[in-house]
Design a protein around this nucleic acid. Structure first.
Lengths: 338, 338
DNA sequence: CCCGGGATAGGAAACGTTTTCTTGGCGGGA
DNA sequence: TCCCGCCAAGAAAACGTTTCCTATCCCGGG
């Protein structure tokens, strides 16, 4: 019945201890004869060891938990991909949870991952500017610190004494280079398709954009999806007809903007420039190609897990961003009124 | 030190049993005073229950395992998204493993998921035509059947008595409708960018394509990625210059083909028609829009988990495919030689 | 006044492992 | 020949829970 170790031991005519020693890869020496018998029976019975019970003793499972804002978002998808890459090499299991960008749900999910024995927890959704959330997160990190590691991706305003690993990318700079690029092309009135502005990566990008541009853009907050970007573009153009460029805080919204323009015969970049952020894989295959800011999301995911598996408990790794100019941005069109 | 139940019980001055009864949501009645004391202490100590230990007793964790060919592939990404959607509702944890489309690795991963207590295992990579693999999979399904459920997505040639849930989509038909569409436009010589042909969904699509076309296409096997499609298009056009249409067995390869054409001044669809399969989200945002066959991948993922959570142990649900004609396909160009 | 029973608490077994500790047997050195 | 020590095997404790079972208390009915 139960394909447990006891039944294997019984069938092999050995004690629980020897069966365990053979099957768990222990260094304890077992006679060749018994070893062979145990292996044969295990094979025969298709014995599958119970990782739960193992974890109970060793105290650690090779399980890494990952908290993302939205599994469907290409941004998180790239990071998840990077994490899986090294997880496969290191034979770790990856459990991903979606928080819907809800801080409270993120904390609850963090707790659940801990409960399920995640030795490593990667918090991929960047921080939000809420004291209650930050306090809650500190509690979780401290608790996690007793037995495992926490990796924070993106900016988090937390106690520096916390033993967390930071994997960062300069979102302010990302916005800034994009802003400068547009300013150089004469754009002054710019619309922004923004994802949820409570997450710091979004607000950082917008802040950087304003800085690079030298002027505050017109921001509309939309669902961080292609359709959100499509709809938001309409809103933006209706509200501010003088806009000469539209920036999405994530590529998929910019892609929605491109499609809106195609559907409404708005020339890109002649009449309107469009730019995104993250440089997801498909950006270069669009027509025109989408100008965006490249972020090494996969590498960041991979680095997150690699650092967590390493020996350094508290460390910080930063990744550079890079402006990628493609066909979707160009000079601002001449207007009657500057 | 250890934030375990024993320390909570001790700190609250109650027995292990009562502490458990309060914190595990048992129906056993506990006096209001003790209940309050336990809850306060648990809060105070930030007690996180050990799911491993719980699972050891109850025998089941709310964990669903998912086996995919490649986490980075948009095709699997969509399915994963669907699974996560209902997992969040049903408060399940999802653990995804990549098999790299290697049958042997798939079986090993299946085993590992079982070992880690996955009550539900969703095998998302479709079957491969290898007796050893099929036998191995049957063993795993039978073993899984004792305590949990297995969901097979796609065609699997397995023993009908196996208690597995099947979520299917007719890949042959997908190829067929695409083939007919191209044939109606006068295409006779068609190139195929094929992913790994040992997986049945790929070979089914190609078989259907040939049937709908009425003639065997020229197939080149490439990595199932955008870059694979890009490179394969070059190979195909060099090998068979007379080709008037190229079909990717997955959209990302067709997208690579589109970009190859854009880079080499090949007019789409005037000189060459391009089509894909799956209808990933970005297809409609390309220029020209990519003609493809829509598959409800997210719904299929969601259905997989929903069925597995339901009461019916063996059942089968099929999803329809639908041709989506966009701008990337058109009449075959006139040639000197038919 | 005594006894039965419901309500509430705690003790202890159980889940499937790993690992420490104990034991028995054997060979080799004195 | 005797004893020490090593090797291989098994018994049992431990991991953190849940739950069954027993024990105590108090109340009401007879």
């Amino acid at each position: 019945m139960g394909g447990n170790l006891k039944s294997v031991a019984r069938a092999a005519g050995v004690s629980l201890a020897t069966a365990s020693r053979v099957l768990s890869g222990s260094t304890y020496s077992v006679s060749a004869e018994l070893r062979a018998r145990v292996l044969a029976v295990a094979e025969e019975l298709d014995y599958v060891p119970n990782a739960q019970a193992r974890a109970l003793i060793s105290g650690s499972t090779r399980t890494v938990g990952m908290l993302v804002g939205d599994v469907g978002d290409p941004y998180f998808h790239a990071m998840i991909h990077g994490v899986h890459e090294v997880a496969a090499q290191e034979s770790c299991l990856v459990t991903v949870m979606s928080t819907g960008r809800d801080p409270e749900r993120e904390l609850a999910s963090f707790r659940e991952l801990q409960s399920h024995g995640a030795t490593i927890v990667i918090v991929a959704g960047s921080g939000v500017n809420d004291p209650a959330y930050q306090a809650g997160l500190e509690v979780r990190i401290r608790s996690q610190g007793r037995t495992g590691r926490t990796v924070l991706m993106g900016r988090h305003e937390l106690d520096e004494t916390l033993e967390a690993i930071h994997v960062e990318v300069d979102n302010v700079d990302a916005g800034r280079v994009l802003g400068r690029h547009l300013a150089e092309h004469g754009h002054r009135r710019v619309g922004v398709l923004s994802g949820s502005s409570i997450v710091s990566s979004t607000s950082d990008r917008i802040a950087g954009l304003a800085e690079g541009l030298g002027v505050a853009p017109e921001v509309v907050e939309v669902p961080q999806t292609r359709d959100g970007g499509y709809a938001g573009t309409g809103t933006l153009l209706r509200r501010e007809p003088g806009i000469t460029a539209i920036v999405g805080t994530a590529d998929q919204m910019a892609i929605g903007a491109l499609s809106y323009c195609a559907d409404h015969d708005i020339g890109v970049p002649d009449e309107l420039s469009v730019a995104g952020c993250n440089d997801i894989w498909v950006c270069r295959d669009l027509t025109p190609g989408l100008t965006t800011v490249h972020m090494p999301l996969e590498e960041m995911g991979a680095a997150a897990l690699r650092l967590a598996l390493g020996s350094d408990p508290g460390c910080r790794q930063s990744f550079p961003v890079q402006l990628v100019v493609r066909g979707s941005t160009g000079p601002a069109p001449e207007r009657d009124q500057g």
